[in-house]
Design a protein around this nucleic acid. Structure first.
Ligand code: SF4
Ligand code: SF4
Lengths: 142, 142
DNA sequence: GCATTACGGACTAATTCGGTCCCTTTTTAA
DNA sequence: TTAAAAAGGGACCGAATTAGTCCGTAATGC
C-alpha cells in the first residue's frame, strides 16, 4: 500500500482550505472548518510556515494565510514541506541515509531515474488543481 | 522523506539479479550474491511468487526464476506485488480503508488524479531498465 | 529414505507515526 | 497596564507499522 503519510494528506487538506478562503484565519477556525483536530493543525502549520508555503501572523487576531499563489504550489512542494526531500530509496542523491548493501547492489543509480519520474508526476498537479470544485475528468494526468 | 519501504527495495534488487542471471537458483544463492539476508530473501520470494513475477521450483535443486520477460515488468508491478495497490490516500478507489474526515474533506476525488500520475510514472520504468548496466543518462524520465 | 528446497504462517523487537501537551513570545484590545 | 488571543518551539507518549527471524510442513530429486 504505497501511500503518503497522514500528516501530509492533512497538510494538503489545510492548504486547499486556505486556497479557497483567501484570508488570515486562526488555526482554531481552520480546524473547525476542516475537521482536522486543532493540535494537529497547529503542528502542521508550523512546518508549512518553515517552508514559506503559508505565512503566519502572530498575536491576537492573527492566524495563517497562503504564502504563494495556489497555481505555483505543486503537490511535490507540499509533500516535501512535510516529509522532507523526495527520495524513494536511500541511494538517490537527495537521501541522507546510507544503505547497508550499497556496495553489492546491482542497480546503483537506477532508482534516481524512477525518483525523477515520480517527482515529475507530483509536480504536474498544483494546489489550484486540488482546490478546484470538480475533479478534472478528462484531463490526462501525465 | 517520501520513500518506498525497504522490503520493496530489496524485492527490486532481487528481481534485477534474476533478470541478469536467467536461471533457476536457490534462495540461498541469491542471498549470497546480493547481500540480502536469507530469511528476508525467502520472505520476499514468497510474495513475488504469489503475483507471478517469479516462478518457483520446489524440491532439491529447485529455486526461483523470473516469471516474465524483464521488459514487461514495470516498477509499478513490483511495488504492487510487495505493498499491494498503489493508493496514495485512503480516498482513491483502490484503497480499502476509510478516512475519518472524508465527509468534510474539501477535495474528495482530487487525489485520484495525483495517484494516476504517480502510477503512470512508475509504469514508465521496466525491470529491464533497472537491470541495465549503466544508468541511462540523458533519457528524459517523464 | 534422505537431503534439499520452497511454502505458509506465527512471532517479536525495533522503529516510526500520530497526536497531545506545555510553556514562551508576540500582538491586539480593553 | 493588563489580559486575552494567537503562533512558535519542542518534549513526550501510546499506538501502529515494519523488518526480520523462526518453525513446522510439503514437495522433489538422488
Ligand atoms: S543501494 Fe541498492 S539496496 Fe541500497 S537503497 Fe540503493 S537500490 Fe536499494
Ligand atoms: S477524504 Fe480528504 S482527508 Fe480523507 S484521505 Fe481523502 S483527501 Fe485525505
Amino acid at each position: 500500500m504505497f501511500r503518503i503519510n497522514r500528516m501530509t494528506d492533512y497538510a494538503v487538506v489545510l492548504l486547499v482550505d486556505m486556497a479557497r478562503k483567501r484570508t488570515v484565519r486562526s488555526a482554531q477556525q481552520i480546524a473547525a472548518e476542516t475537521g482536522v483536530p486543532l493540535p494537529t493543525v497547529s503542528k502542521i502549520m508550523k512546518t508549512l510556515t518553515r517552508d514559506g508555503l503559508v505565512t503566519s501572523v502572530r498575536g491576537a487576531g492573527g492566524g495563517y494565510a497562503l504564502g504563494r499563489e495556489p497555481g505555483v504550489i505543486t503537490v511535490a512542494d507540499m509533500i516535501q514541506a512535510v516529509e522532507g526531500p523526495i527520495a524513494l530509496t536511500s541511494c538517490v542523491e537527495e537521501a541522507e541515509e546510507e544503505c547497508g548493501i550499497e556496495s553489492l547492489c546491482p542497480m546503483h543509480g537506477h532508482w534516481t531515474q524512477v525518483n525523477t519520474a515520480v517527482r515529475g508526476a507530483l509536480a504536474t498537479v498544483s494546489l489550484a488543481d486540488m482546490a478546484a470544485d470538480q475533479p478534472m475528468f478528462g484531463v490526462p494526468a501525465q
